[in-house]
């Protein structure tokens, strides 16, 4: 089973890299980008076949290592 994890900065946490991307896009002439936020994408190949157990495991991985929940949110997709 594959787990796809998105880690993003929480609302209200300043994202200077996102801001720089936003400005670069604007300077390149791409209009209409109101905001850019940068995050991380992590893909895990799991041996677990039970979806509930997999979700529980990956959730623990996110809380303990993959995301810093002081500043980041995460979302998990399994397939």
């Amino acid at each position: 089973m594959k787990a796809r994890i998105h880690v993003t900065l929480k609302n209200g946490v300043l994202d200077p890299q996102g801001k720089a991307i936003e400005h670069a896009l604007s300077n390149m002439g791409f209009g209409g980008v109101d905001e850019a936020r940068q995050g991380k994408f992590i893909e895990l190949e799991l041996s677990e076949t039970d979806k509930d157990k997999a979700h529980e495991n990956v959730d623990a991985m996110c809380r303990k290592l993959l995301a810093n929940t002081v500043i980041e949110n995460y979302s998990i997709e399994l397939e």
Binding site: P16, Q17, V70, I71
Partner: peptide
């Protein structure tokens, strides 16, 4: 708390 990228990068 946490230590993030410097605001001016």
């Amino acid at each position: 708390g946490a230590l993030m990228r410097n605001a001016n990068l």
